[in-house]
Design a protein around this nucleic acid. Structure first.
Lengths: 243, 243
DNA sequence: TATGTTATTATGTTTGTACATAAGTAAACC
DNA sequence: GGTTTACTTATGTACAAACATAATAACATA
């Protein structure tokens, strides 16, 4: 933890402060509930104004990473992995935002014949092969999600892409495909033998399964995605408001 | 649109500005893409500082309701999380919409001491009793969800209410409490013995658990709600869109 | 004509300063 | 001893004042 604020850098100070904080809160002491240094001191130490520092803190508070209480101070919100109404963060971005380093445990790409649900969703003939991508991902300690994705042939993926890059970035930059609409179905189910083995849990354990249908701006189907999350490690959060 | 800023009010100016903006952007012109008045002018008109106004704008930007671009101005983002409708249907309405006739299998109302999570959410002392309502509901064939709700004492519920009426209707009509914001956490878990017995399934079966935090217009906590759904019978769907 | 130059506009960044408020703790008072 | 009062701490609210920057338009120059 040497990273500090560089006043010469073209990067805005509050952005620098933000990264600084993201690093800082990784420290075990803060993860364990210790208060962050108070705003006035920290601002002084970083040689930025309190307002600027608050700007950075605010962002993390908004994201739900920090909680503040008067007189009590600021500390990291002890919450689980969640997808905080930002449905549109990709998995890697989502994890990054929480300071979790992701590890890809397995990646497998193949061309397969679509089953009925998929052929239907893509509106293609069942004898037209589609690209299937399977990924086992998690943090440094253990895998906690197994993804299966199918992509519409129209996109032109060939299977040699660098799937280590964020998926939607890849689709947008290299294939001009913009994922705009997502329909998701979330349900609980019991892990079958295959999934249980991948996630290193017992068959029959509860898992959270997410089915995601992704469309482009013209509502054309792009991706059919299945995700199986180890139960304890995933909580889906939704925030909604009515008037 | 006469609502403006009241400097005498105990409500912070940036909060007032926020409500003002929320109203403002309802106007069809802004919905149709017209730029909001620029910050400097608007701040002058509202008689608050630009900083304070920006504080309010920032919040809406973060929520994804507004987009800003240098030189281009600020306008409403044409993006929508349309899971709204879904989230705000109460259970009975939700079921009705699916053509399912609901049956109440059990209803139990009691006054209990809140556990830490609840006391915290309500921000009350743990020795202050709260109203707890438990309900087992389902269709004509079988129960498929077990609800546990806790209500904030402030509301003034006494426990003798007619809980057969839709809940949010009751709160609104009889107690002038409007549920506006809901934060939900959805996760999979295994049924414990208690829940399993209620839902008539084996202990250890997968269930979908939904934790719901409900707030009123002033973001004050109203209800803490837990729902345990029989896995096969419930799928949570979300539709989201970005621009 | 093509290419700089400048002005304009509206948001973006940053600071310094001040007082308010919630929730404690300690001291003072009767 | 118990109640009030004052202090302390750290966040919350608010303002004014500059200067930076991105995008564009209008103008000027080679």
């Amino acid at each position: 933890m040497k990273i500090s604020i560089d006043h010469k850098s073209p990067i805005p100070l509050h952005i620098q402060a933000e990264s600084f904080l993201r690093q800082l809160i990784q420290e075990p002491e803060y993860q364990n509930g210790k208060n962050l240094p108070n705003e006035v001191d920290m601002a002084k130490k970083l040689a930025i104004s309190r307002t600027t520092l608050r700007q950075a803190i605010n962002k993390l508070v908004f994201e739900g990473l920090l909680v503040r209480k008067k007189k009590f101070g600021t500390k990291v919100a002890h919450m689980k992995i969640s997808s905080k109404s930002m449905n549109w963060l990709s998995f890697s971005q989502e994890m990054q935002a929480r300071g979790i380093t992701i590890r890809n445990y397995e990646l497998h790409v193949s061309w397969v014949l679509p089953d009925e649900a998929i052929a239907n969703f893509f509106n293609i003939k069942p004898d037209k092969k589609v690209l299937k991508m399977e990924r086992l991902r998690g943090d440094m300690d253990e895998p906690f999600v197994y993804f299966i994705s199918y992509f519409h042939p129209r996109i032109g993926l060939n299977g040699d892409e660098d799937f280590k890059r964020p998926l939607y970035e890849l689709l947008e930059q290299d294939y001009s495909v913009k994922a705009i609409v997502s329909k998701e179905e979330i349900s609980a189910r019991q892990a079958d033998k295959f999934i249980a083995a991948k996630l290193e849990i017992d068959a029959g354990s509860a898992i959270l399964s997410r089915k995601r249908f992704v469309y482009d701006q013209a509502e054309r189907p792009i991706e059919y995605n299945l995700g199986f999350y180890k139960a304890e490690s995933f909580v889906y959060t939704i925030e909604s408001r009515r008037e």
